[in-house]
Amino acid sequence: MEVFLVSLLNGLVYGMLLFMLASGLTLILSMMGVLNFAHASAYMLGAYFAFTISQYIGFWPALVLAPLLCGTIGAAIEMYGLRRVHRNGHIAELLFTFGLALIIEKVVQMTWGLIPVPYRIPAGLDFPLFTVYGTQFPAYRAFMLLISALMFGAIWLGLTRTRIGLVIQAALHHPEMVGALGHNVPRVFTTVFAAGTALAGLAGVIGGNYHVTEPAMAFTMGPIVFVVVVFGGLGSLTGCFIASLLMGLIQTFAVVLDYSVADLLKWFGFTVTSATPFHEVLTVPLPRIGALLPYVLLVLILVFRPRGLMGTRDT
């Protein structure tokens, strides 16, 4: 029970962090068809910007300024980079963002150095909020949950209750039609791209001091975010939300469940011994392959349900 409750909380926090990153990416991918490889780089930039800003004027202004800065960079990338590359098709866009991700990583290394920067949790939030069976639950994690929940609410309201939200939703499915109706679709694209990057930046601001702010953080976060987006399905924010929480919980619970395929087979009265074929694979405990599970799910969903969990069209 104790382990279950703490793992549930940890899984939620991690899942919500994934959602903050993936929500922006899923909007960009479903609308513009661009698999933005540089998305996790915006997460990293958000963390580094927040670190630098918080050194001068504190954490709270950084919470606002760093995502804005990321959003501005995102807008610039879309307007001066992607839009030009767009003419040459999706492969060119993909390669463009891939190159961008590598360049951003190098620039970060040259600016802030290779070793982690001391980006710390603000003193006002650095206390245990409550204790679950002797394990402290830091207030900062609750704060992360709060921010991401607020963000989910804001995006959802924005997309369903505002005019621009309706235009974006329409452009998700029928960009030509929206253009024909007289809306400025390129500007909508820029807005979405900037907003997506800003969200990734926000995730960086609150994820950077929860984890460690270092040049490898984009690289380690990137692949899992793609899994979430594809798993959740194109064009569906709800699917993305469910997929994020699912991935967070799967990775958390995989660690604490010390079982292997052999244990499962035992239930059916089949005992695995060292003489059984493939016994090495069968006896690998779940925690050792936990990090791999999301990718297994990715492969499975692409085979059996290419639209993803709640997607409205094929990936």
Binding site: E2, V3, G11, Y14, T252
Partner: peptide
């Protein structure tokens, strides 16, 4: 006694829960 994949884990909190338990 645990082995983890090299350089793949982003969140060690679940491991800490397990160690505590």
């Amino acid at each position: 006694d645990e082995l983890i994949p090299l350089g793949k884990i982003k969140d060690f909190a679940p491991y800490i829960t397990k160690i505590k338990a």
